[in-house]
Write a protein that binds this DNA or RNA. Sequence first.
DNA 1: AGACCGGTGTCCGGGATCGGACAGCAGCAA
DNA 2: TTGCTGCTGTCCGATCCCGGACACCGGTCT
Lengths: 179, 179
Amino acid sequence: MDGPRILLIEDDLAIVQAIGFALRGVAEVDHIPGPDDLPDTFPFERYAAVLLDMNFRPEQREGRAGLDAIGQLRAADPTLAIVMLTVFGGVAIAVEALKRGACDFLLKPWRNDRLVAATRAAIDLTSRQRAGAAMSLDAIERHAIERAIERAEGNISRAAAALGITRPALYRRIEKHGL
Amino acid sequence: MDGPRILLIEDDLAIVQAIGFALRGVAEVDHIPGPDDLPDTFPFERYAAVLLDMNFRPEQREGRAGLDAIGQLRAADPTLAIVMLTVFGGVAIAVEALKRGACDFLLKPWRNDRLVAATRAAIDLTSRQRAGAAMSLDAIERHAIERAIERAEGNISRAAAALGITRPALYRRIEKHGL
DNA sequence: AGACCGGTGTCCGGGATCGGACAGCAGCAA
DNA sequence: TTGCTGCTGTCCGATCCCGGACACCGGTCT
């Protein structure tokens, strides 16, 4: 668990090399040519982000395979942030990709600083999502209570009603969590 | 609380009229020319979605004002789904808009069926987000427990550890929630 | 003033919940 | 077989939390 490690899904070896070079010092880059090359059991938890090439299957129109791969990856590990890479510039595809759960969308050719920034952001997002997913029940409760009180604008009674508990119960929990 | 009501932020009256016509039967459409025309206290909770025109401030480059408006609206009501409308087709802007919390991004001129579909999806998203935000503490706990057990692949001990509670406590809660 | 309202903060007895402990079970290695 | 491991499901006495009730407070009516 030294530096972050990311997974690059890209069939063009020249691009693989270029990305590996651009991201030296940012993350270790592992590489597979396409999402179909993922073995049945794959250690997603080792990776801090995925860079996913949209066009690994050039014969398929509109990069639909790339979109499907997003769903596939997210089903396998919903905490893993995915950055799309593509030469096709359609707004519709970008929107669809983000709606399916990609966290960013970069056009080739990219500026290296943008790639680095997007990768860093994705790594950060993954770690935050994993922290959130691994939250203890107590922490979850604390968050829910904080939000409820905020939404009720400090009105304890309404917050308690929204949370489905009695007002004294909410007082106790507020004190317990130190709020 | 009869049909859904949506808020259209758009300065071009011809477009306002066209959208109102396209969405007849889908939602009641209220309209203001720009986000700055929102009064300090505005009943966001009455609306089931927002259609936000990107270009209400033509002198500003790149529709940055439109992007800022997303943040403004989401700060006011984070459960309200926002659909962007724009004539500018840049992928970068679309990506930025979605990253800032818009739920969809339509290019003018749009196909009416796409507009209707996007509006319906936004209305649905809002209602789901509001249902989630208004969840009782019990329901939140139940969800967290379900997810934890799923993530632990049915292993009760690991799920309990991840939730930060003892195993008997998790058993009790599983039974209480009927899982 | 006096009554009312909607809110806050606190108390206390009874019942729910805690977690350590125990028994049991399946898999596996010596 | 024996022993070990890692899990499941359950028990029970000590403890904690529940929620109805109460006192109180500030604003707003008549």
